[in-house]
Each structure stands twice: as C-alpha cells, then as structure tokens.
Amino acid sequence: MTHVTPVFTDLVRVETRLYNAVSARLRAEQGLGLGQFEFLEIVDRVPGCRVLDIAGELAITVGAVSKAVDRLVAAGWCERVAHPQDRRSSVLRLTPEGEERLAASRPVVESALLSLTSAVSPDDLARVASVLVTLRAALEAGSHGRPG
C-alpha cells in the first residue's frame, strides 16, 4: 500500500460519514435528502441550468441526473421549461415550493456541518479546504472523475 492509499481511504470515509449524517438530519428536519438539496442548490445557482450542467458539476451520468430531476419535478420542487434557444432541450427552474424548501434547508445543512466538523480548528479546516480545492481543480482539468 502506498502512502497515498490511506489518505484516499480516510478522505472517502470522512466524506461518506459527513454526507450520511447531514443527509439524515436534513431528511428528518426538512423531508429531503442531501442529494436532493445539492440538485436544488445547483438549479438555483446556475442560470439556465440544464440536466447536463448538473451532470458535469457532480460528475455523474446524464441518465442519473434526469431520473433525479424527474423525482424533484414529481415532488413539486422543480420544473422543466422549454429552452429559449434549443427546442430539444429544457431548462430547470425551482418552483416556489422548491425555493422555500431550499431556503429552509440551507441553515440545517450549515448547522449540521458546523457541528460535525467542530473537532477540527478553523485554521486546520481552512488548510484542508485549500488542499481539496487544488486537488479538485487538478482532477476537473482532466478527464479524471468523470462518469463512464
């Protein structure tokens, strides 16, 4: 085992435990999981958001995103509207209920993350964040981490 393998293992285990804990709290308090929250966040943040935009940002397949968006639409949190320049495509938009759900969920996510990371000093957390930004940028600059 190389010296990088234990770092990778720790990184994955930390991410999984953080994700699961935040998702459980969000589901209990707001009735949606962290994955749904992330999708709503992206739709809210990306002007003219399309399924392809979410797939690119999360490095998952278009099919997986499309199915998840279908569930958001069925829940009444998101809608697909005709793309103004491309009739074969659609743009995603939050519904008023989706906007409310997202706004109510943001402080829950922030609070859960603050609580779960409280064992790490703010300076150490900032250093970890800096390293992760560098690693993520390097991975996203190539084809690494893309689905398929």
Rank of each mutant, 00 (worst) to 15 (best):
G35D: 08
G35Y: 03
Q36R: 13
Q36S: 14
F37E: 00
E38F: 14
E38W: 08
L40Q: 03
E41A: 13
E41D: 08
E41P: 00
D44W: 11
C49H: 14
C49I: 09
R50L: 06
V51W: 04
V51H: 04
V51F: 03
D53Q: 07
D53W: 06
I54V: 13
I54N: 05
G56Y: 15
E57R: 15
A59L: 12
I60Y: 10
T61V: 01
T61N: 01
G63T: 11
A64R: 14
A64Q: 10
V65K: 07
S66M: 04
S66V: 05
S66H: 12
A68Y: 09
V69K: 03
D70P: 06
L72T: 00
A74M: 07
G76A: 01
W77P: 00
W77M: 02
W77V: 01
C78S: 05
E79C: 03
A82F: 08
A82C: 04
P84L: 01
P84F: 04
D86S: 14
D86C: 11
R87Y: 12
R87C: 04
R88P: 01
S89A: 15
L92K: 02
L92S: 01
L94A: 02
L94N: 00
L94R: 01
P96F: 06
P96E: 11
P96N: 06
E100V: 13
R101C: 00
R101H: 02
L102G: 01
L102R: 05
A104K: 11
P107M: 14
P107W: 15
P107I: 07
V108P: 04
E110A: 15
E110W: 08
S111E: 12
A112Y: 12
L113V: 14
L113T: 13
L114A: 14
L114I: 02
L116H: 05
T117Q: 08
T117G: 12
T117D: 07
S118G: 13
A119K: 08
V120A: 15
S121D: 06
P122M: 04
P122D: 02
D123Q: 15
L125S: 13
R127W: 01
V128A: 14
V128N: 01
A129G: 08
V131L: 11
L132E: 06
T134C: 00
L135F: 09
R136P: 00
E140P: 12
A141M: 05
G142R: 07
G142F: 03
G142Y: 03
S143D: 13
H144N: 04
G145V: 09
R146I: 06
